[in-house]
Amino acid sequence: MKKLLKTVIAAAGILATASAFAADYPAKNIKLIVPFGAGGGTDAVGRTIANSAKDILGKNITVMNRTGGSGAVGMSFGAQSRPDGYTLTVVTREIASLPQMGLMQHDADDFELIRLVNLDPAVVLVSADSPYKNINDLIADAKANPGKVKFASTAAPNFYLMTLEKDQGIKLNAIPYNGASEAIPAVLGGHTAVTMVTPGEAISQLRSGQLKALGVMSKERTALIPDVPTLVEQGVNVTSGTWRGIGAPKGTPAEIIEILGKAFDEAMASQEFKDFMAKGAMTIHNMNAEEFTAFVKEDTAALGALVK
């Protein structure tokens, strides 16, 4: 019994120090919730930035994968955590889309957004022997055969595709696959005609020439695949992509957000993180808290126009 009592007292002691002032933040290890499974792209970004930031903050950052509902479970869990700066969440584009579809009970307003880390455009991909030479071939075919061109979709619904469909007034036959690792073989095997994924997800097929990029869905060409023209260049004014950032639960003290923001700035500038992102063909895009918050608001509105 004595032993138990001791433990309880010790626990109370830790509690007291934890809720102490932000001045000595961080006083203990930080938890980073990743709303997708171990081994995926979001997980890799989360783990790497945690690894780079831990030396800067002087405390370990442990990654906790909490999967489910296309990220909804993990992000909701993160939004409901104690706002003491010891539980952070990797926030992904799903925070802008899922709440509007009624598939998530929390939204971006439930977070203090700290930094945007990564922003990647989608790339339109066809197999190397595809008859489509550019995006307009694809659009023309889709116009001639509405609902017939088979599209390997990495998620249902697929916002990359919906943006294009809405802008061009076309309709493709979207077949839902479980992420890029299933959508890409579907195109390679000729079962579907086209897919849209981020450059990092298809970098090895692009390098080996098994897949052909019809265009990248950003305003400017991306440094990772500089030979691929944008859709805008080809006269199709459509952009889309995905992003990942870091957030803390609403109500986290501003001083703590500032400390974390500076730490993540430094982490993103570290050679280790830069190397990792470059090798994975992912783009680092650092936005500070205000820019990030405004950006998410804008994206939420854009996606809202699609689902309504």
């Binding site: 626990a11 830790i14 509690l15 934890a18 938890k31 442990t62 990654v63 906790m64």
Partner: peptide, 11 residues
Amino acid sequence: FFISLPEGMFY
């Protein structure tokens, strides 16, 4: 394994 086990409500 760096798996954070549940810490309870006091932490």
